[in-house]
Amino acid sequence: MRPTRPTSLPTRCFRLARMGWHIAIGLVIVATRFPRLAYAERAVVTQRWSRQLLKILGITVEVAGDSPGFYPNNTLLVANHVSWLDIFVLNSATVSRFVAKQEIRRWPVAGWLVASAGTVFIDRNSRRDASRVNQHLARALENGGCMAVFPEATTSDGSVLLPFKPSLFESVRQSRGTVQPVALNYRTPHDTPCTAAAYAGDTTFMQSLRMILATPAIRVELRYGSRISADGANGSEPTRFQLAEAARDEIVRGLRITPARPDTAARTPADPPA
């Protein structure tokens, strides 16, 4: 198959200008409207904004599986992590508040924007911070929220699924809620793997953005797996390790890959105790 030609320079510049204007609109909305809105109302604005951003960048989202809906109650959304676009792809279908590394909070403009949108920040270098974040997540879930985590705790190019860190699954056990696995699969219009959106390894944000702007079209398969109950209603209450393993199995099926099973029950320095 002949490789797809990159977009022209004028097209890339036009996309970038539209994206910049759209971000400026988002900043104004967050600064003026968000403080007066309930989370459910913010979700409507967030979904609309995310869909428009993806459209500007030539990205279409195809939803498969049993979607939990627009803003599911007491639900921990769990996904594989490929790109900075993942947040907007997920929010285009199921709106949630995310957990992000603490460093993002210090980013100019973007840090303020994601903090204002209700993001929960975690210090991944602190073994004790997972307990604080779990309590915060559990309260948000109990209050009817939908929260989202990327249990790989880093990004990949989308061809593999890294081991899951089970620590943050403790929050959904505390809230006796539901884990909703969802697989993100970036494809070309010809249904071949697309790595243009990958934000992994030594790739910088600007390099990632340039690749996305130069790609004529990206198709993202958003495949929801079976929901996993954390309330123990069907017998013994699952551990956070069991929840992490079950969620990972569902995402593996959604990605249609067969990686070796990691030992998610093993405690490592990268998996701080809950």
Rank of each mutant, 00 (worst) to 15 (best):
2 R>C: 11
8 S>H: 09
10 P>V: 11
10 P>T: 10
12 R>E: 12
14 F>G: 11
17 A>K: 08
19 M>V: 15
21 W>K: 07
25 I>C: 14
26 G>P: 03
28 V>D: 03
29 I>W: 06
30 V>F: 01
33 R>M: 13
33 R>S: 14
40 A>P: 07
41 E>K: 04
41 E>M: 05
44 V>E: 10
45 V>D: 08
52 Q>H: 14
54 L>N: 11
55 K>S: 15
56 I>Q: 00
56 I>L: 01
60 T>G: 13
61 V>R: 00
64 A>F: 15
64 A>S: 14
67 S>M: 06
69 G>F: 13
71 Y>E: 05
73 N>M: 13
73 N>P: 04
74 N>F: 04
77 L>I: 14
77 L>T: 07
78 V>D: 03
81 H>R: 11
82 V>D: 02
83 S>Y: 04
86 D>F: 02
87 I>Y: 04
88 F>H: 11
88 F>S: 10
88 F>T: 06
88 F>L: 14
89 V>A: 02
89 V>P: 02
89 V>D: 03
89 V>C: 06
92 S>Y: 01
99 V>I: 08
101 K>Q: 11
105 R>S: 15
106 R>I: 12
107 W>E: 00
110 A>L: 15
113 L>P: 00
113 L>T: 00
114 V>L: 13
117 A>V: 13
117 A>P: 06
119 T>I: 05
120 V>R: 06
121 F>I: 10
122 I>H: 01
122 I>F: 03
122 I>E: 00
123 D>I: 10
125 N>C: 07
125 N>W: 03
125 N>P: 00
125 N>Q: 15
127 R>G: 12
127 R>V: 05
129 D>N: 12
129 D>W: 05
130 A>G: 13
132 R>H: 15
138 A>I: 10
142 E>W: 07
142 E>I: 13
143 N>A: 15
144 G>M: 03
144 G>E: 01
145 G>Y: 01
146 C>M: 09
147 M>K: 03
148 A>C: 12
153 A>R: 08
155 T>I: 02
156 S>T: 14
158 G>V: 07
161 L>C: 04
164 F>N: 00
165 K>Y: 14
165 K>L: 12
168 L>T: 01
169 F>Q: 03
172 V>H: 02
172 V>K: 08
176 R>D: 14
180 Q>C: 10
182 V>C: 05
183 A>M: 06
186 Y>P: 00
186 Y>L: 00
187 R>E: 15
189 P>A: 08
191 D>L: 13
192 T>H: 12
194 C>N: 10
196 A>Y: 07
198 A>K: 01
198 A>E: 01
198 A>F: 04
200 A>V: 07
202 D>P: 08
203 T>L: 09
204 T>A: 05
205 F>M: 09
205 F>Q: 06
214 A>H: 00
214 A>T: 02
215 T>M: 05
217 A>S: 11
218 I>N: 00
221 E>G: 08
221 E>R: 09
221 E>W: 11
228 I>M: 01
231 D>P: 05
232 G>D: 02
233 A>I: 06
234 N>H: 15
235 G>A: 10
238 P>R: 02
240 R>K: 14
242 Q>A: 15
243 L>T: 04
249 D>V: 12
252 V>D: 09
256 R>G: 12
257 I>S: 03
258 T>V: 10
260 A>P: 11
264 T>D: 12
264 T>Y: 02
265 A>T: 13
266 A>N: 04
266 A>G: 08
269 P>T: 07
269 P>D: 04
270 A>Y: 07
272 P>C: 06
274 A>N: 12
274 A>H: 04
